[in-house]
Amino acid sequence: MDILKTENLKSYYILEMGETKKEVKAVNDVTINIHEDEIYGIAGESGCGKSTFLKTICKLVEPPLRMIGGTIYYQIDGKYVEITEIKEEDFRKLRWKYISYIPQGSMNALNPIIRIRESFKDFFTAHQKIENEERDFEEPLKKHLSALGLPVRVLKSYPHQLSGGMRQRTTIALATILKPRIIVADEPTTALDVVAQRAVIQLLKDIQKLQKNTIILVTHDMAVHANITDRIGIMYAGMFVEEARTDDIFENPLHPYTKFLIASLPKMGDKTYKPSVPGVPPSLSNLPPGCPFHPRCPYVMDICKKEIPQLVELNTEHKSACFLNSKERVE
């Protein structure tokens, strides 16, 4: 069963500068389904709308970002609930218990002037009453930290006293303390060295195994995806252009953009030249007509310049939004 699904989701940054109004189409008509108990990866280059997509599904939309259209459903106790219809105060109660968010660059996600324990307490008391300090808060907190392999002494520290990797892991521990059903992680490994990256990835894996929840993980590091995710969605210019099981994507990419992406990955022993995608990504405020990838696509056809290809299922659980693929099917 799906835990979260979106239909034709659109969120734009609307920038008004005097007379001129600029629309940045950061999430443009996205329809995806995310299953229960899986790690779903989202990949794509910088500025393709990955973070905006996450913010939108977490209802963290603030001007100039605006949700223009579409629907977002959470599955709560077997029923699909449209979250834009939930009142802000009721949604506040869903946060952290149902969906939690690990922000991009979460090195600075902790209030710098309070101790970590205080941060944990703030997040905890926002959702649960503490009647007995020791039983209701200290106990479960220490249990949670040791389950994640974090030393209890971090609680006494201020954020600046921890290393970057430690801070990141603390943030993740904080995001998972109430065992949320969905964890949304926006580039949790960016700005960390590989050793710390590994620790963070392992932590996310462990949490998922332990709590059986869904992780939506955004990163442009394909190695991280290969290592941890069950399924991957590839984003390009605000749209999902391909979605498949992780091994499928790496072995048999269908969309030309994904092909370039996978071909660019270095392999052990392979010393051949890695070609990059020609051209530059389009401006989200001024998308080309038709398929947004067509100006860079070596297989471009006439239809690509006029119509936007839809994300269609080609093989089992393998979807692609490219006329090249769908045409082969049709004919």
Binding site: L60, S100, Y101, P103, N108, A109, L110, I113, A126
Partner: peptide, 25 residues
């Protein structure tokens, strides 16, 4: 700042975010 965003994502009450996270800093 990230920590204000994070506190919002964490569903902290507005008054708490305003005083303890924003004003204090």
């Amino acid at each position: 700042e990230d920590y204000v965003m994070y506190a919002k994502a964490g569903g902290l009450k507005e008054s708490k975010i305003a005083f303890k996270y924003v004003l204090k800093n």
